[in-house]
Simulated scan of single mutants.
Amino acid sequence: MNEVDVRFAQKRDVKQLSHTLGRAFFDDPVMMWMVPDDAKRARALPRIFGAMARHHFMGNDAVEVAGRAGTVGAAALWDPPGRWKQTPREELRMMPAFLLAMGLKVGRGMGVAEMMKEHHPEEPHWYLAVIGSDPDVRGGGFGHALMRSRLDRCDAEGAPAYLESSKESNVPYYLRFGFEVTGEITVPGGGPTMWQMWRQPG
């Protein structure tokens, strides 16, 4: 079997990585709550991830993709220390795609984003905002390769890392990489719960 290839994403990768993440997050509890209709969510998620990557994450030079034989099997959207907050300009540029993707539900998405900001740690850290593998290749080592690529750098820099797990079933996966649960964020009004996880450098 060919080795998993991890590399920094280029602009030309955004469309493919957005579709990969859209498929990865189709059954995600937060995404299902924000866009309950299956057909609408399938169309919405690539637009959402595309806008986030294009207008924020790519500018931080911290988007990585994992592939084999030229295909993008998984992607990770990271923010470097001190860079996790989106600027008003970035938010403005993302809004048309969010409105197109979520329609009347866009308020739910904005509410979740605000809650996550309120609970975000202040200490400088690498922030893993999004990581996902295409369901067709899940278990093939793509996500593991992406995690190791960035966490090895965190360890070399002596920098902590932070993420929110939107699936309780994924918490044990992150624990294996040295993350620890530090809190829970529950969206009011019957919304989902996210698990805050922090990793000290090894």
Rank of each mutant, 00 (worst) to 15 (best):
R148L: 00
I185E: 07
H125F: 06
A9C: 07
V130P: 00
L104V: 14
E164Y: 03
G190T: 01
Q196V: 07
P135D: 08
M58N: 13
V137S: 03
M115G: 01
Q10G: 12
G67M: 09
V72H: 07
L92W: 10
K85R: 15
G191F: 04
S133I: 08
V171C: 00
M94K: 05
S133G: 08
Q196E: 06
P160M: 01
Y173K: 00
H56T: 08
S149T: 12
T182H: 00
Y174G: 00
G141A: 03
S18Y: 01
E91S: 05
M31I: 13
V14C: 10
P188K: 08
L77A: 03
G103M: 09
M197C: 13
M31N: 12
P96M: 10
E164F: 01
P29Y: 03
L104R: 15
R93C: 12
A159H: 11
M197A: 04
R41W: 11
G132P: 01
H119P: 10
G189E: 07
R23Y: 00
F177C: 00
R89F: 11
H125S: 13
D13R: 00
F25D: 05
A97P: 02
S149H: 15
E3N: 08
H56K: 09
R54T: 11
R12N: 15
M95H: 11
Q16D: 12
T186H: 02
G50F: 07
H144P: 10
A76T: 06
D79I: 14
Y174I: 06
K167Y: 13
Q16M: 10
